[in-house]
Amino acid sequence: MSLVPVDGSAGELRASSGWALMASELSVLFRRRRTWAMLLALAAVPVLIAVAVRLSPSEVPPGRGPPFLDRVTQNGLFVAVTALVVSVPLFLPLTIGVVAGDTISGEAGLGTLRYLLVAPAGRVRLLIVKYVGTAAFCLAATLSVVTSGLVIGAALFPVGPVTLLSGDTIEAGESVVRSFLVAGYIMVSLLGLSAIGLFISTLTDVPVGAMAATIVLSVVSQVLNALPQLEWLHPWLFSHYWLGFADLLRQPVSWDSFGDNALLQAGYLAVFGSLAYGRFLTRDILS
């Protein structure tokens, strides 16, 4: 990285160093033991649910416990959806908060931020790379819940045609496709929170503070979303469409909330991305 090729143009060098930075960021992120621990913990959620239902001597009565739980014994493919319903409010935002809050402040806390910026990558590029890394973790996190749910569900319970919310039935193969669609929806849902985490991370050199603040904000947003008195505010909260993934389980699929959600998350990304840009490019990097 320190040698500047004489014949290479500066643009090419910057582009290639950007990809190199991205590759190194992703490999560092996914080689961390903490990342694996979080992914395994997420994968354990459906396993816990499936084993608990399997060992329980009595049938789960309809309408009790988390939604879809009573369908698990009839069809193992519901384990994945049940686990997502359980993970969306807390577990997923928790892990995203850890990864997003750590992005910049983690490097600052370790004293490695200076060295990252010595390379000719630039601060904007570092922000983008860090955000893409967080988004990749969002995808890995939701996929780990869904995949583990499908596998454990198929292992412990019968698998067959799946009843959708509308009462219509689809084949098991299509239901797997829908499960991954739901995972995609949830990954998109978490992009706004990731942007908030990235911004908070540029504010401090203490990674734990940035993580905690991000997680607290995700809880606050959900609490506000539950207060009927604040109904005017609800469509603006980044957690508002988090449980809207159920629209993908209707027949025909309703894409409305998918579009609304994507637009909302893009708005959060634009606002907090530009805030992070303003903060990170103007601050003095001392560590």
Binding site: G267, A270, V271, S274, L275, Y277, G278, L281, T282
Partner: peptide
Amino acid sequence: RWVPAAAVPAVI
């Protein structure tokens, strides 16, 4: 550097 942070909410 802070112009985008002010402009984006204004545009929205």
